[in-house]
């Protein structure tokens, strides 16, 4: 504390933000850029100079095959999207219902609660592919009058059954993260248990579980490829067929990129939504 202190404020800021050493902004940016380029260059050098690189390039990175097969593979992807969207809507509802049933505390509802727990345990323990097989092949075989044999419908049902169980657990963690005092405040105002759940607990719970829900969305997106096992040709099967026709693996790369084209924006979108709702709640006005 000798001499004249230049200003109090920078000193305080330093004390708060600098537990360890920090780079100035521009320096940090330059360092990050240079370090990224070095890493990419080293990895690129190693890959390109690998013994099998020419062979790999030919098998997986054939530009001609890529653009040749892109339209048909992209078209097949529409089936995945249709399956994803249909199942997702049902899963969001089904998962919520399961989570609420599982959280029922009154002894009257014990059987419902038990059923929800059993269902979630079983469905989370089964590989999706098994459920798709059992429903998609089993039910048409039963040949019940009036029951659809459409594999698309049974794929939707199977994915909904499996993923509702996962999503229910995500919802439940959100519901449990809302402090009991919120429920107490709602009940003390005369709201019923279900009104408190609907207007006070769930809105807060759902906001908190958007990011983990997105993880499950992405998992579901990838699971849509499993429908090919019971017949319909979706993006992965189409890529397989194209690969067989061209004796080249590039079509797989096409299907991978198509998946990423959808899943990466989904991740960005949700990050943005979370950020926006955080800003909104601290900004003071709507």
């Amino acid at each position: 504390m000798s001499g004249t202190p230049p200003s109090r404020i920078p000193r305080v800021r330093q004390a708060i933000s600098a537990p360890a050493h920090r780079w100035p902004r521009l320096t940090a940016f330059v360092i990050a850029t240079v370090s990224t380029f070095i890493v990419l260059a080293v990895v690129g050098f190693l890959v390109v100079n690998a013994a099998g690189w020419p062979k790999f390039q030919k098998a997986f990175l054939d530009g001609e095959v890529f653009f040749d097969r892109l339209p048909e593979i992209a078209k097949a992807f529409l089936l995945n999207v249709r399956l994803f969207v249909t199942a997702e809507v049902l899963i969001l509802g089904g998962g919520l219902l399961l989570a609420v049933l599982r959280g029922l505390k009154s002894p009257i509802f014990f059987p419902l609660r038990l059923a929800a727990i059993a269902y979630i345990d079983i469905m989370r323990g089964l590989p999706s592919i098994l459920v798709i097989y059992m429903l998609g092949l089993g039910i048409p075989t039963l040949n019940i009058a009036g029951v659809s044999k459409d594999p698309f419908i049974w794929a939707v049902v199977a994915l909904t059954m499996v993923w509702s169980a996962y999503v229910a657990e995500v919802y439940r963690s959100g519901i449990e993260s809302v402090h009991p005092s919120q429920n107490a405040a709602a009940r003390s105002l005369g709201l019923s248990a279900s009104q408190s759940m609907r207007f006070v607990v769930l809105p807060q719970a759902i906001r908190r579980v958007i990011p983990p829900l997105l993880n499950d969305f992405i998992g579901l997106m990838k699971d849509t490829a499993l429908i090919s096992f019971i017949g319909p040709i979706e993006v992965f099967r189409r890529a397989q067929i194209s690969a067989a026709a061209t004796f080249n693996f590039t079509p797989y790369l096409v299907s991978a990129m198509i998946f990423l084209l959808l899943t990466i924006p989904m991740a960005r979108l949700v990050d943005w939504l979370v950020e926006r709702s955080r800003r909104r709640q601290t900004a003071g006005s709507r």
């Binding site: 005092s181 405040a185 003390s188 005369g190 006070v200 807060q204 709640q281």
Partner: peptide, 17 residues
């Protein structure tokens, strides 16, 4: 009954959303 009995808590317990 609760409609007729109001309670205010130490921690306010307003609905943050």
């Amino acid at each position: 009954i609760r409609r007729r009995i109001g309670i205010v808590f130490q921690a306010y317990n307003l609905f943050p959303h």
